[in-house]
Amino acid sequence: MRILLTGGGTGGHIYPALSVWNYLHQDTNDASEVLYVGTERGLERDIVQRAGLPFMAIHAAGLRRELSLSALRTAFQTVRGYLEARRILKNFCPDVVLGTGGYVTLPVIFAAHGLGIPSVVWEGNAQPGLTNLLCARRATVMAVALPGSERAFKAARRVVLTGHPRASEIRLADDARRSAARQLYRLRPGRKVILVFCGSRGAQTVNQTVLQMAALKLPERPDVQLILVTGQASYSEMEQLAKRSDLPDNVQLVPFVDDMPALLPQVDVVVTRAGAGTVAEVASLGIPAVLIPSPYVTGNHQEPNAARLVKHGAATMLLEKDLTAPTLWNAVANYLSSSHWRQAHAAALELATPDAVDRLASVVLEAASKRS
């Protein structure tokens, strides 16, 4: 089988596609061929090439609803990307195309439709983006991660609920990897672990508030350990601020986590953004979460992601404009109570789809079988 993957801009669009490929690649005993199509401007080239997959770039740009010079430039880039995608598809001759969102998905899915190649488009957020809404009309199957998202795709030929592939991948770390994580992060028996992470680049406002909270509250809580993942770009600045704050030894700063699937299952509470992948991961592991949706994302789509967990009692949402050391501590401390933790843990697991990668891969294989 030949599969063409596309999706770009951020890790939230790239990693789900790679998760499906990893699953299919193992399941088919190296019999499949893959090509990833992205752009030069997003993160996909570096991430995909580090994963060892062949990569080709086309032009793509964010769609605009208004009539303007910028909108005309965007339209030109999209048409150019469509023609480039057609050439790639004709040369590679995939059995199926999987698109996981981002600007690049549109020209590739439109080109696949024009050439009669089956395609699956996957949407991870509660509030779909414009690209996937437009692609849904031309995809063979529209797959969604969250219940209720189906209603946004009334024009699709078929819509299926699969869950988020990262919910499966986060559960795969073996005992040796988990033991290595315990040693690396000095996890101690009897201590409850709070993990704070806001993506590879971190979030300065969150980082600063967490350090203020830690200085105020954690000296009196030796039963708690806090790990703050600052992001590589912010690490030096946060490290200096931490030294001036005279933090206790139960607070640890790290620039990034190399093996999140090994560390996350050993955490009691997380403080994080509400990207679709992150929400799926913490739900899959049943970890109570304090979610701080990013106010800087397109369409404010992280708030609906967080709201779903909050509605079911699995998380607390704090908007960044309301974030202070006291409000953050109150939200975190609530889950340090055993009864509240158990309730949120059970609620999160009810929302989880641990077999999500299997579901989505099955949809992709079924679509590929329809290739004429």
Rank of each mutant, 00 (worst) to 15 (best):
A61F: 07
G81W: 08
M238P: 14
E169K: 11
D259Y: 11
P255Y: 12
A173C: 12
L24F: 14
T131V: 15
P354W: 03
L89G: 04
L115F: 09
Y23T: 05
S294V: 04
G9L: 04
T316D: 06
D95A: 10
G12N: 10
Y296M: 06
A314M: 10
S200Q: 03
E320Q: 14
P128W: 00
Q183M: 07
P118F: 06
L161R: 14
Q49F: 01
L285C: 03
D355Y: 05
A203T: 12
A214Y: 14
A60V: 02
S19Y: 13
N250G: 01
L35I: 07
V357C: 09
I47W: 08
T105S: 15
R65P: 01
T205F: 11
L98R: 11
V48F: 01
Q208C: 05
T10L: 02
I287K: 02
A346Q: 14
T278N: 11
E44L: 03
F55I: 02
Y36C: 09
G38M: 05
P118H: 02
D258R: 13
V160G: 03
T205M: 14
G52A: 05
P265I: 08
E44N: 02
D258M: 09
L216V: 02
S338I: 00
L5V: 10
V79F: 12
E220G: 06
R80W: 00
C93I: 04
P354D: 01
A167N: 00
Q225R: 13
L263T: 00
M1Q: 08
R64Q: 12
Q77M: 13
Q208K: 06
A143D: 10
L4I: 09
L360G: 06
S179V: 03
A180H: 12
P288M: 03
V104W: 01
P222Q: 09
Q49A: 12
L318N: 06
A346E: 07
L365S: 02
A17L: 10
T209A: 13
Y36M: 02
A233L: 13
S234E: 15
I14M: 12
G116K: 11
R158D: 13
Q302C: 11
L72G: 00
F256V: 02
P128E: 00
A156N: 10
T298F: 08
L53M: 14
R50D: 15
W341M: 04
M1W: 01
L18I: 13
L133H: 05
L264G: 11
G52P: 12
K370R: 15
V229E: 01
R2A: 10
V196P: 08
A111D: 04
S236M: 14
R188F: 09
P219Q: 02
A214V: 14
S236H: 15
R151C: 07
A346M: 01
M238Y: 12
T316V: 13
P261Y: 09
L228I: 05
L184H: 08
G12Y: 09
G299K: 05
M238E: 15
K154S: 09
V20Y: 07
P354A: 02
K311H: 09
Q49R: 15
T205W: 09
P222R: 10
V120D: 04
W329Q: 01
T272E: 10
L63T: 13
W122V: 03
N334I: 05
A85T: 08
L89D: 10
P147V: 00
T140M: 02
G313F: 14
P16Y: 00
L309P: 03
Y82E: 06
A112P: 07
R166T: 01
